[in-house]
Design a binder for these strands. Structure first.
Length: 266
DNA sequence: GCTAAATGTTGAT
DNA sequence: TCAACCTTTAGCT
């Protein structure tokens, strides 16, 4: 489930499992063999996340840069590690735990300068303390494109994916086609704070839940997956607030879900 | 067992 | 705008 919250959660977890000890890095599948050899045996000094990009920092100044793309996945566990099965791009063995990475779109070794070049192309990340609502707003108001496309543009704001995009626009009654230049400062400020709260909750729980308790079936404990969203993947089902069937279209090659009543055309 | 779809990005047309 | 790529899973037969 790789939106920004997944990556930040992985960064924290990997820091806990690996930091402060040497790690042995291999590529059972072979496609990361050269990179693995560059860092293997060095101490893990920390991890970092920016948007959907994850970095493992090794002593000696090398970084492993991972982008999960749509399909990438990490698994981990306590040593001893099981025999790698199938296409394992990277396997990391620390002092007490192992990690396994499959299906990433990117897995490469970078220098600090190269890492800076990666993050320089990214907009502010709502999950980072150094992010700023004002800077994102400045990126929005410069563009005529609809806010629905802009929120998915990682140069504008980093870490939002298709689920958070659909859900945050619904929660604020905004049409995905509202031009970025028409986004006003006060409603953007409210949306941004809400987004930060939702994404931080996602980091904590490891899943995306955007519905308010009063908008889902009563019950304690874990929110059922069918109750987690307002519009994402709910095409044809009645809007939780107004009953209008949720709509879906394809925009920029991605599915876009919205309620035409709660999010009227601009 | 097969097919389609998926929370993403890049590069060609 | 479209296809390609990375891999798993759900829903069929």
């Amino acid at each position: 489930m790789p939106e920004g919250h997944t990556i930040h959660r992985l960064a924290r977890r990997h820091a806990r499992l690996l930091t402060g000890a040497p790690a042995y890095v291999e590529s059972p599948q072979g496609r990361f063999a050269e990179g693995a050899a560059l860092v293997s045996g060095s101490e893990v000094v920390g991890t970092d996340a920016w948007g959907k990009h994850l970095f493992h920092e090794y002593a000696g100044g090398r970084l492993v840069h991972v982008h999960l793309g749509l399909f990438g996945r990490f698994r981990d566990g306590r040593l001893p590690a099981p025999e790698p099965r199938g296409a394992v791009r990277m396997r990391v063995t620390g002092e007490s735990h192992w990690l396994e990475l499959r299906g990433p779109i990117t897995c490469e070794v970078l220098t600090p300068t190269e890492r800076d070049a990666v993050t320089a192309r990214l907009g502010p990340d709502p999950l980072r303390d150094d992010s700023s609502a004002e800077r994102v707003l400045a990126n929005l108001v410069r563009r005529r494109t609809g806010i629905g496309a802009l929120l998915m543009d990682q140069c504008v704001v980093a870490g939002i994916g298709n689920v958070y995009r659909a859900e945050i626009l619904f929660r604020h009654g905004l049409s995905p086609w509202l031009p970025g230049r028409l986004v006003d400062e006060s409603s953007w400020g409210v949306l941004w704070e809400d987004l930060r709260v939702l994404m931080h909750a996602g980091v904590r729980s490891g899943r995306i839940v955007t519905t308010r308790p009063e908008d889902r079936a009563p019950g304690e404990g874990r929110v059922r997956q069918t109750d987690a969203y307002y519009v994402y993947r709910r095409e044809g089902r009645p809007c939780r607030l107004c009953g209008t069937p949720v709509r879906r279209t394809t925009w920029g090659g991605r599915n876009l879900f919205w309620c035409p009543t709660c999010q009227p055309d601009p």
